[in-house]
């Protein structure tokens, strides 16, 4: 039996081109000025979120009603809200909420969705039929209504909103992984590894996942932005982040009530969302162009 040595040559053959392809993609990504600037913007936002307590000496939740609805000034760079809370501090700490929720949602939907897609692509048959029909049913719902139904069942809150949005993204990853996975399954080195008796887990880990990685990386990067918008949307509706936590969606919702008196309350969180989502979209598009040569021709 040649089982123990079977996967080794296959890995060696596969790893060399992957590395050079990765380098080529990185070089291509670096040539895309928009994507590189967007990446730096994201790095700055991440640093601002981490260093929020150092960048603002004001508390994002401490109320001071005597300072309510103050316009922007040196003391309060972006003014204050209806409870006298410093808007700049809330925007900074809101970045933490936004990035955390974006990453958590993508992590949940990416891991479960990938597993879902792998089961359908790799095993096919009954797995494929049942799981893809479940995906069809998920996708039959307009996504926000599905998310709202889940929030209605679980109750409003940040964790519930994260779960709800993550669930709505699952079939997207499942379908994506399935479509790419079906192609990988037909590749000769996968067929060879199978015929040599390599275990399923090994084939999936060594051959499927590395080949799925570029597609998943692009989708995940794009989804961080949409997840931030979607959770902000739920918070805007009062179904996501609950007071007094600083959250851009909730801040927009509250600010809308004072739009005539204090328009800066809707400007600051809105611009913050736009910058982060725009940056993650640009990075995602840059990655797609770098990793998928076909998309370069359409750009």
């Amino acid at each position: 039996m040649a089982l123990p040595i079977a996967p080794t040559p296959v890995e060696e053959i596969k790893e060399a081109p992957l590395t050079s392809e990765g380098l080529r993609a990185w070089r291509h990504f670096r040539r895309n000025r928009g994507a590189v600037v967007a990446l730096w913007v994201l790095v700055v936002v991440i640093l601002a979120a981490i260093l929020a307590p150092l960048l603002s000496h004001q508390s994002p939740v401490a109320q001071n009603l005597s300072q309510a609805l103050q316009p922007p000034s040196p003391a309060h760079l972006l003014g204050t809200d209806e409870y006298g809370r410093d808007e700049f501090a809330r925007v900074l700490f809101g970045a933490r909420t936004a990035l955390e929720t974006g990453l958590i949602i993508v992590a949940i939907s990416l891991s479960i969705g990938t597993l879902w897609g792998l089961l359908t692509a790799y095993y096919g048959g009954i797995w494929d039929m049942v799981l893809m029909r479940v995906a069809d049913i998920f996708m039959a719902f307009p996504f926000l209504l599905l998310a709202l139904m889940i929030v209605a069942a679980l109750g409003p809150g940040l964790v519930q909103a994260e779960i709800a949005i993550a669930i709505t993204y699952l079939p997207v990853y499942a379908r994506l992984v399935r479509s790419v996975g079906l192609g990988i399954k037909q590749l000769e080195f996968v067929q060879a590894a199978k015929s040599l008796g390599a275990r399923d887990a090994l084939i999936i880990r060594r051959h499927f996942l590395p080949n799925l990685l570029p597609t998943l990386l692009v989708q995940a990067t794009l989804n961080v932005g949409t997840a931030i918008i979607d959770v902000a949307g739920l918070s805007f509706l009062g179904m996501g982040v609950q007071p007094p936590t600083a959250d851009w969606g909730a801040m927009l919702s509250d600010g809308q009530n004072f739009i005539l008196l204090s328009p800066w309350l809707v400007l600051a969180p809105g611009i913050a969302i736009l910058i982060v989502v725009l940056a993650s979209n640009l990075v995602g598009d840059g990655l797609r162009e770098a990793l998928d040569p076909r998309s370069r021709h359409q750009a």
């Binding site: 902000a232 949307g233 969606g249 919702s253 809105g270 969302i273 989502v277 979209n281």
Partner: peptide, 11 residues
């Protein structure tokens, strides 16, 4: 594509 719909409305 990047602008949240609720912010577009408010703007």
């Amino acid at each position: 594509i990047s602008m949240p719909i609720f912010w577009t409305g408010v703007m």
